Simulated assay, not measured.
Amino acid sequence: MAESEGSDTPLQKRQRLVREAAGWLAVLGVLIPGLQRFYMGHRRWGWGYLVLGLMVFVPSIPLQILSYGVRALCLLEGLWLLTMTNEDFDFRFNRDLIELDWTSAQDREVRDPEQQLQSQLQQGLITRAEYEERRRQIRRIS
């Protein structure tokens, strides 16, 4: 197990978060606020949501309004999480667990047909005559 620098406690490897689970827990936050925050490992936020969400039982109208606001926030957060793509969710919440695919500008795919032809010619995949013929065809089409 890896150890953090300057600390004697070992790092815990956490599980990958699931977008649907976090989203539905947030929607369930209309009844019990903060579940999605506990699931995502944000314990302080979870306790904050839970305490503010339970203020609905306090006989004070401003605190009850605050409680309903937290519950509405949970609903909105749930809808946001459920409509998010898996890639966005992983980038935001599972960034330490995903392998990012870094490529240089030279390695990325060229979309311009003439540049593709030029690249094929430089790599020796086509002859100069084939290059000229295909380039004329591309220019006729466009």
Rank of each mutant, 00 (worst) to 15 (best):
L28P: 02
G41M: 06
W102I: 15
S142D: 14
Q120T: 01
S4I: 04
S119W: 08
R43G: 03
Q123T: 03
L35H: 02
W45A: 11
G48C: 10
G69D: 05
Q120S: 05
Y39K: 06
E132K: 12
L81H: 03
S4E: 06
L54I: 04
R16H: 13
I32M: 09
Q137H: 15
R111D: 14
T9V: 14
L31E: 00
G23R: 01
F91K: 13
P113E: 05
V70H: 00
L63T: 05
E20K: 15
R14S: 12
S67C: 10
D8E: 14
L121R: 10
Q106T: 15
E77P: 00
V56G: 06
Q120C: 02
E3N: 07
I32G: 01
L79I: 12
E132C: 05
M1I: 07
M55T: 10
G48F: 11
L28W: 12
Q116F: 04
G69L: 12
V70G: 00
G53W: 01
R71E: 04
W80I: 05
D101Y: 10
W47A: 09
Q115D: 14
Y49H: 10
V18S: 11
G53S: 05
L125R: 09
G46E: 03
E133C: 07
Q106W: 14
T127L: 02
Q123R: 13
S4T: 03
Y39M: 05
F38Y: 11
S67V: 10
L82Y: 06
S7V: 10
R134A: 11
E87C: 07
I126Y: 04
V27W: 08
L52F: 13
R92L: 14
V58P: 06
L63Q: 09
G78L: 04
Q120A: 13
E5V: 10
V18F: 04
L81I: 11
L121K: 06
L76V: 13
S67Y: 10
R134Q: 15
Y49T: 02
S4V: 08
D112L: 11
G48V: 06
N94S: 03
G69Q: 03
E114T: 08
E109Q: 15
V58M: 08
A2N: 09
R108G: 04
S142C: 09
Q115G: 13
Q123G: 03
M40H: 02
M55G: 13
E3F: 15
Q123F: 05
L25R: 06
I32T: 13
R139L: 14
R108I: 15
L66E: 00
R43M: 07
L66H: 06
H42N: 12
L125C: 01
D101I: 14
N94R: 04
V58T: 12
Y39E: 02
L79G: 11
L66Y: 08
D88F: 02
L82E: 03
R19A: 03
D88T: 14
R92K: 15
G69W: 09
S4Q: 12
A72F: 13
G34Q: 01
V70N: 00
L66S: 08
L97F: 07
W80L: 08
V18L: 01
A72D: 00
M55C: 15
Q15L: 10
E133P: 00
A2R: 09
E87K: 11
Y131K: 07
P33M: 09
L25V: 05
V70R: 00
S142T: 13
G6A: 12
I65C: 12
R37I: 01
G23H: 03
S104Y: 11
L25D: 00
